[in-house]
Design a protein around this nucleic acid. Structure first.
Lengths: 156, 156
DNA sequence: GACAGACACTTGATGCTTCAATCATTTTTC
DNA sequence: GAAAAATGATTGAAGCATCAAGTGTCTGTC
């Protein structure tokens, strides 16, 4: 017996679906136009830039960018071809690959950041009360946790 | 001079990006596995099913599903090939195309709905306080509005 | 110390999304 | 009432994401 969504849930859900369908392309579009980067490309560079030694193992970067290892591998290959990122084998274990941000990658990130941050601010935070910023963090965190938990359940 | 995000905004933003990166594939994956439909396919069928006469013009369906006309056109072509949807010229104006849900499309939607709704409930609403449901609707609505407004600005 | 399984990652094929260009129709402007 | 602009929709090419299958490495376990 299906438990359908009530009216409030229905409205909230349609709006959230709207965010996924509209915000994602909007971010990609601005970054693509101004910096020839995908939003996901940007996220990879940003996560590397904040990591110790500007370098992370593939699986750690995948986890920090919320991506599958497969998706990340394709994207890192592309970024490597463009010279924004470099791969090298880990000294610790031969099945581990380390990715690091190159100087060119760092520069590209620094150039792209202001425009991207402005876009995020204007699309998400402009006019959003502080209480809603907190709520957004709480709710989005809740959803991400549930998705991760369900993935573990179905993989088993 | 860039106005960077403060710490609270930063955390909220990373979590929201996580939702877009993880929730969307999770929905696609369940629907694909159980009903051979994309989440966007589902949305199209669902919007048609609720429309008067189970039929809408392309541009109206695009607007209700938050998609570009181009994306919709490709997807409708695919759904039409599979017999879930039919196109016909509008009697009102010759540049308008009407899309309508076929009986097969209706059946497919009815079969897919319970599993999809269960997934949405378990990933989004399970354990989410009613106050947060309202906040989600408000915040997501705020974001969608801003994205739409910015699109209008850049198109001009 | 060999073998089964787990782990880290890569690859190739397929289908989806976007962008830019296009076409036909309708409306506006002069 | 023609020309110009706007609207509604489609198309093809290029780039992305996903899935399933693969490679190589490491870790038990007997």
């Amino acid at each position: 017996m299906t438990r359908w969504l009530d009216e409030d849930e229905q409205r909230a859900w349609l709006r959230l679906a709207g965010v996924m369908l509209k915000l994602s392309p909007a971010l990609d579009s601005q970054l693509q136009r101004d910096s020839d980067l995908t939003h996901f490309d940007y996220l990879c560079l940003a996560m590397l830039s904040e990591a110790e030694g500007r370098s992370l193992r593939m699986s750690e970067l995948a986890s920090r960018t919320n991506a599958s290892l497969s998706r990340l591998s394709h994207v890192v290959s592309k970024l490597e071809r463009r010279g924004l990122v470099a791969r090298c084998p880990s000294p610790e274990s031969r099945r581990v690959t380390l990715v690091s941000l190159t100087d060119d990658g760092w520069e590209r990130l620094v150039e792209a950041a202001p425009g991207h941050v402005e876009t995020v601010r204007s699309l998400v935070f402009e006019g959003l009360p502080a209480a809603d910023v907190a709520a957004l963090e709480r709710i989005a965190g809740h959803i991400v946790e549930h998705v991760e938990a369900s993935r573990l359940r179905t993989v088993e």
